[in-house]
Write a protein that binds this DNA or RNA. Structure first.
Lengths: 339, 339
DNA sequence: CTGAAGTGATAAACCGGTATAGCTCCTGCA
DNA sequence: TGCAGGAGCTATACCGGTTTATCACTTCAG
């Protein structure tokens, strides 16, 4: 028999469909002996529940969704998403819940996907990334009553659950390290300013500047692309008074910046120190290898999965979990300033 | 009303559930007038089919799967998968079929996933990547009778459908280009030899060597990692008679190789030309930017999606579609040999 | 004028599970 | 001895669609 159903098992065991359902789901209603017999028969017939049938009856589909709103071109090189995805998967696999991934162009399309998923009952919940300052997705999800967890940003008061790392502390650890090396002119090639984490990093740097005696600490916004990262670096290094260190908001931009420095004959780390937010193979492949802030993105994903499952189980729960602080991995791209 | 069902629509339109189903699926059984009325009401109530209900009734789930068997660590930087994924998605979105992604450790786990997906009816078909020489997945999928399409390798006689590019021609275009520049000692840092495409590249190089007058054309196997790419490069450049050009089977390895060359004081492209199979931001970020073989991976994905849908519609169909040939993008890492 | 074929619709079965009401014993306690 | 209560199980409704059998009513050919 190709694909046995619980009716087949019930026949074979000489019991009713209901009894089989009870037995297979580990709930009371059958004796231990009967349960064991049913389980054995099911095993022997290699029965597996039909996901659609279960979804229809139990009104949950054992599937969650992740939508990423970025052009595919820039996606590939960023290990962040691959690691996050693996972590999510690992956190979900225990309950054999599947993960749906969708890449879209922008937030409008993203919300449209949530709407569709919700009305088609395709997912039990979703994971949100790249939270912006007044993010329209939060309200949209609230309205849809679709369980959700924000990764890398705080959901806010009576808003969505979240799993976040402290971007402020992370930025401080970088700046303090550079200041301790003797740097006083530190520039920050930031990401898109409407991302919450970008804002928090900018503010952290601005706040720390006076205390650390930094004479100049500008944050320059970009769109996270390698092109703008390079252009901004070029501008910074063309000034009469150059920064002695640059902090980049992503590894891709840091690599692009390193290229510009080499091209302009600015030696790294001799004339310029470089630090990247986000670590990856990319930073390690470079010469010199880049000092970078390492986050355990995999664990991040796993925790997000856990929180999402809790929220799905109890939609009224508001969980804001803080993850382990990222650590600075010092490599070859940072040194005391030469002058 | 929160989530209307076809019963609600039927009520409102004063017809039966069956009529509504016919109307919404564009099949005969209702008059044009009635159909229009039903469609309007459905639109107005913003009805969307419940995916599980439809799956149960129609015995298709409108979802296909992609399993990637690679450690997550190496996955992130390779834009190949992100682009392939986007392409697949784009090819599937027309029929609003969703795409399930799963990352696993090895092929054994991958087959296990297919088995589970099949028995739980979670997908209508799957896409296979990284085909090996005597790939156990092919037989497994045949046995499961799960529609599948192989990307980047030929399914083989009465085997699976496939979408493939000609790796042989690709390798030839690279070697001929290098030979035309004057190179005679060309090395090939290959991938895992049990991948079909790796084998085809190795064979193409070996076949072309005599014709092009290459004095030496070794193919050295690696595991595709940056570490082995670097180590192999180091070995090649430490020989008394060095190759004047190296072809790498992936962009990541090429970047690692470039790093080794710089470190050893071998100038690129002065003393050594470098070519990468697979193009990406990575190759463009380098200094010098790497000459690379560009494939339209997005289109690759889209075509794979099309073929898969055909195979799902008619499982007896055997389709082997050849895609556009990859083209060599010449950048700064290749030049005539200095001696 | 009659019978056959076609059109437009309905009612009901069905897909494979889950949830629930109810039935039959058996046990324990008054 | 009688009865409440619980354990163990069955029968059945239900989830929201699709599919099939059937039927009433036209229309058209013979």
């Amino acid at each position: 028999m190709a694909r046995p159903t619980i009716a087949d098992i019930a026949d074979r065991a000489g019991v009713s469909k209901g009894a089989v359902s009870f037995a297979l789901n580990g709930r009371p209603g059958v004796s231990d002996a009967t349960r064991a017999r049913i389980l054995e028969i099911a095993e022997q017939m290699s029965w597996r529940p039909h996901s659609a049938a279960r979804a229809l009856g139990a009104s949950r589909v054992d599937s969650v969704g992740l939508v990423i709103a970025r052009p595919a071109r820039t996606l590939g090189v960023e290990p962040f998403f691959a690691h996050l995805f693996s972590g999510l998967q690992s956190g979900l696999s225990a309950q054999s819940i599947s993960l749906q991934l969708l890449i879209v162009e922008d937030t409008v399309a993203e919300i449209e996907v949530y709407r569709r998923w919700s009305s088609e009952h395709r997912v039990d919940g979703v994971i949100l990334v790249d939270l912006t300052v007044r993010d329209p997705r939060v309200d949209a999800l609230k309205a849809l009553e679709l369980p959700a967890v924000v990764v890398g940003g705080r959901g806010g008061k009576d808003a969505l659950a979240s799993v976040w790392a402290d971007d402020r502390d992370a930025m401080l650890s970088i700046v303090e390290y550079l200041a301790a090396l003797g740097h006083r002119r530190i520039a920050h090639v930031a990401g898109t300013p409407n991302f919450q984490h970008t804002q928090r990093r900018i503010k952290a740097l601005r706040d720390a500047a006076p205390r650390l005696g930094l004479t100049d600490a500008p944050s320059l916004p970009t769109d996270f692309s390698d092109a703008e990262g390079a252009a901004t670096t070029r501008k910074l290094l063309s000034q009469s008074v150059r920064p002695t260190a640059i902090i980049y908001d992503s590894d891709v931009m840091a690599v692009a910046g390193l290229g510009v420095a080499m091209e302009m004959g600015v030696s790294v780390p001799g004339d310029l120190s470089i630090v990247a937010f986000d670590d990856s193979i990319l930073t390690q492949l470079m010469h010199p290898a880049l000092t970078a802030l390492s986050r355990d993105t995999f664990d991040f994903g796993r925790q997000a999965a856990e929180v999402l499952l809790e929220v799905i189980a109890d939609p009224s729960a508001v969980i804001n979990r803080r993850t382990a602080d990222p650590v600075l991995t010092v490599r070859e791209s940072t040194a005391p300033p030469s002058h």
